[in-house]
């Protein structure tokens, strides 16, 4: 699998590696997918990178590759900003080859990472018709998670027709941030758009939402999909290629 802009792949890994330290990559002719849960099984990430999004892509037989995302992140940090990236696994090999090329083809770096044997549980996530679908700038969402974490461990997300409200409370007191739906969309990337069938009010652990925001550099916009008594879906699109979707179980009153 070859990417002209290897930085896309580095951003994907950076977006996942805090939530899941290691994961099984499923490779087929259609592309690369991954599904993994965090160690407490409260959050899940689902990654899709379609073959047509790569500069070139070939997969002669389906493979499951157990990879340490922490190690891969370290290797990818050695990559130059404009480097291209090729990922290769040879038949019957116990390692993955990560090759980087500088833009003017004067530097070539190769790394081999040992593959791991991982037990992975795969959950079936049905297509869900969510009550609310919110789109907002991903930088804004990151900022809100950071700001709400000052006040508490949990953030309550409430939607109305007018907008969406995030609030948190704790020992210090409480705080809230309300975003109003953008009425005059000039730049789509900066818009806050709320599609609502029913109002929702759901509480989530802000620590996990903050981890999801590590994937924010992938996309200028984030999508949040919510329904009562259903895990939140937080989506960052990978341009022309696929997406990273995070799922998080809501907090409930005991």
């Amino acid at each position: 699998a070859r990417l002209l802009h290897g930085s896309i792949f580095a951003k994907v890994i950076e977006g996942l590696r805090e939530l899941v330290n290691e994961a099984t990559w499923e490779c087929s002719g259609n592309g690369i997918t991954l599904q993994a849960m965090d160690s407490s099984h409260v959050a899940l990430v689902s990654l899709v990178m379609r073959s047509e999004g790569f500069e070139s892509y070939r997969c002669d037989r389906n493979m499951s590759l157990g990879i340490s995302l922490v190690s891969m992140s370290k290797v990818l940090k050695t990559m130059g900003k404009d480097d291209s990236l090729t990922i290769r696994v040879n038949d019957d090999s116990d390692s993955i080859i990560i090759a980087m090329e500088s833009q003017n083809q004067d530097k070539f770096a190769d790394y081999e990472l040992r593959l791991m044997d991982l037990d992975s549980e795969h959950l079936g996530i049905p297509d869900t018709d969510y009550s609310c679908a919110i789109k907002m700038p991903s930088s804004e969402f990151s900022r809100i998670c950071r700001d709400m974490s000052i006040m508490g461990d949990s953030v309550l997300i409430c939607t109305t027709k007018e907008g969406v409200k995030f609030s948190a409370k704790g020992d210090l007191g409480q705080g809230s941030i309300r975003l109003v739906q953008t009425t005059n969309i000039e730049k789509e990337e900066e818009a806050v758009i709320i599609e609502m069938k029913e109002a929702v009010a759901l509480t989530f652990a802000v620590r996990y939402l903050s981890m999801f925001c590590k994937a924010a550099p992938l996309s200028p916009q984030v999508g949040l999909s919510l329904s009562e008594d259903t895990p939140l879906m937080c989506e960052f699109k990978i341009a022309e290629m696929g997406h990273v979707r995070f799922y998080l179980a809501p907090k409930i009153e005991d």
Binding site: H41, V42, T230, P231, A249, K251
Partner: peptide, 14 residues
């Protein structure tokens, strides 16, 4: 007290 659910309550294993 707030309790965090596991995803298995919502989604089943494939």
């Amino acid at each position: 007290k707030r309790h965090q659910n596991q995803l298995r309550l919502y989604y089943s294993s494939d």
